[in-house]
Design a binder for these strands. Structure first.
Length: 207
DNA sequence: ACTAGGATGGTCT
DNA sequence: GACCATCCTAGTA
């Protein structure tokens, strides 16, 4: 397993401010790392979506809606928000904003970087292919993440964290478009808050 | 490449 | 009981 030479843990200050759309864009090119039972896996974030809490009809926390499920979103930036979608898929958000500001960024695609053999086994795939980590339900399975990791810190002392490995994604290499699967959000479904690294094959299908 | 349809269960009304 | 921030397979091309 290779350890990156120049990598730093993203600090709480990266997450704990209100500009969730900017954080969503800034997470492109950062690395999600998990280490469960000494099984080390990592991938570069290539696709995200911003969900701007109280003012966003697409967000679970729209109108400051606080339930058992959404309570994690109110706990302050720098932790995970993970929930089960369609009874099968575990989707991971990065919680952002100060405490009581329930913003989140959905991680929709990563490019596998370390522990590819472990990821393939978790996904029950015979060889490296696009669907290993393209799509929000696929990447969590590859990384070994499920709803039991809801509310985990991303900023240290945790089996899940996000690193800055000093990769810069120029804005000309970022595609911005409407979010996926949020038709229920009425007029807010068209907000262009989905971000992708252009020409990267590890994103979920274009729309 | 694309499309249609089924699987599946947590969450909230 | 309805609604999902989805993925897989099987079909056609």
């Amino acid at each position: 397993m290779t350890q990156a030479v120049s990598s730093t843990l993203l600090p709480p200050a990266f997450y704990q401010h209100e500009a969730v759309v900017e954080i969503s864009r800034a997470l492109l090119g950062k690395f999600i790392v998990t280490n469960f039972a000494n099984r080390y896996t990592a991938g570069m974030i290539v696709e995200t979506e911003a969900y701007a809490g109280p003012q966003d009809k697409a967000a679970h926390s729209y109108g400051n809606r606080r339930t058992l499920r959404t309570s994690t979103l109110f706990m302050g930036g720098g932790i995970t928000y993970i929930y089960v979608c369609y009874g099968i898929h575990h989707l991971m958000n990065v919680v952002t904003g100060p405490p009581e500001m329930p913003h989140g960024v959905l991680i929709r695609g990563i490019e596998p970087v370390e522990g590819v053999d472990i990821m393939l086994a978790r996904r029950q795939l015979p060889y490296l292919q696009h669907r290993l980590t393209a799509g929000p339900g696929s990447l969590t399975q590859a990384l070994g993440i499920s709803r039991v990791h809801n509310g985990f810190a991303l900023t240290g002392n945790s089996p899940i964290w996000i690193e800055d490995r000093k990769i810069v994604i120029p804005s000309r290499c970022i595609m911005q478009s409407p979010r996926v699967g949020v038709g229920y959000a009425q007029e807010h479904q068209y907000r262009p808050w989905r971000f992708r690294i252009k020409n990267n094959s590890w994103t979920s299908p274009a729309k």
